[in-house]
Computed example of a mutant assay.
Amino acid sequence: MLNKDRIAVFIDADNAPASKMESILSEVAKYGVVSIRRAYGNWKKPALKSWEDILHDYAIQPIQQFDITKGKNAADIALVIDVMDVLYTKQVEVICLVSSDCDYTPLVTRIVSDGKLVIGFGERKAPTPFVNACSKFLYLDDPETINEAVNDTVPIKSDTKLMNLLRQAIEANEDDDGWASLGPVGSHISNQTSFDQRNYGFSKLSDLFRAIDLFELQKIEGNGYKVRDSRKKR
């Protein structure tokens, strides 16, 4: 059965790469139907020239906001107002925010508290509070850059926060021998944070676990896996 959740996409054009919109909308389509697509910025600025064709190709509504005061971005405020308006007047289940700006963190927190799913997209410069506030956050940096930066088990193993997250998810679902089915482990992680294994260069959660020698991965009947913390090996 197709997912019929309604999605609203809001784009901070000053803080988002136009070249990534195809990937963004392809990802969002997994969650339902996009009924609202809006991009905010001062469209008279040369810096936003790259958005012109993208707006037409993907039927994105451009919302014009002039920079009234130097150093202040009126588009940010307009975006927040429209999100809150949609939250209260439209039937949407998913809000998608495309930006790398930390200013949206309180907005995300508010949306999540209303029971909505918030999917964030931004570059790796996006501040941690904004990333963690989202239900799910995906980085938009070029795949080559991502692979070079994170597809190495040494830096992944040294990420204490990530290791604790993975171990806690296993412990919450393990049997008497320390094994936990990968599906419930992934669900447990998703309920805690905006984690997505693709941000570490892996298409599947099983690939991430397989790349870290601190865990054991074992295939089970069908296409499933179970995982165990190597420290609990008997």
Rank of each mutant, 00 (worst) to 15 (best):
L2S: 06
R6M: 03
I7C: 11
V9A: 06
V9E: 05
I11R: 01
A13M: 07
A16T: 11
A16K: 06
S23D: 13
S23I: 15
I24V: 12
L25Y: 13
L25G: 07
L25T: 14
L25F: 14
A29R: 12
A29I: 10
G32H: 04
G32C: 01
G32W: 05
I36G: 08
Y40H: 12
G41R: 12
G41L: 10
G41N: 12
W43H: 09
L48M: 13
L48S: 10
S50Y: 08
W51Y: 14
D53M: 13
H56R: 15
Q64S: 08
N73A: 02
N73L: 00
N73T: 01
D76V: 00
A78M: 00
A78E: 02
V80W: 00
M84K: 04
Y88H: 08
T89V: 05
Q91V: 06
Q91I: 06
L97V: 03
L97P: 00
V98F: 05
V98E: 04
S99Q: 04
S100W: 06
S100D: 01
S100E: 04
C102Q: 13
C102E: 08
Y104Q: 01
Y104F: 14
P106K: 04
L107G: 05
T109S: 14
R110V: 01
V112I: 03
L117A: 03
I119R: 08
G120P: 00
F121S: 07
E123Y: 00
E123I: 02
A126Q: 05
T128F: 07
P129I: 05
F130E: 02
F130N: 06
A133T: 01
C134H: 05
K136T: 07
D142Y: 05
P143H: 03
E144L: 02
T145V: 12
N147V: 09
A149L: 10
V150E: 01
V154Q: 15
D159I: 07
D159M: 08
D159K: 08
T160W: 03
N164A: 13
L165T: 13
L166E: 08
R167V: 14
R167E: 09
R167I: 14
R167K: 11
R167C: 09
Q168E: 13
A169W: 09
I170C: 06
N173R: 07
E174K: 07
D177Q: 13
G178V: 02
G178P: 04
W179D: 11
A180G: 07
S181T: 10
L182Y: 09
G183Q: 09
V185I: 10
G186W: 11
S187D: 14
H188N: 14
S190V: 13
S190A: 15
S190P: 06
N191V: 06
Q192N: 11
Q192L: 11
T193V: 10
D196C: 11
N199Q: 13
G201W: 12
G201I: 08
G201H: 14
G201A: 12
S206Q: 10
D207H: 10
L208Q: 11
F209G: 09
F209C: 09
F209I: 08
F209T: 11
R210G: 13
A211V: 02
A211Y: 06
I212L: 14
I212C: 11
D213S: 09
F215M: 02
E216F: 14
I220H: 06
N223H: 10
G224Q: 06
R228Q: 05
S230L: 11
R231M: 08
R231L: 08
K233Y: 06
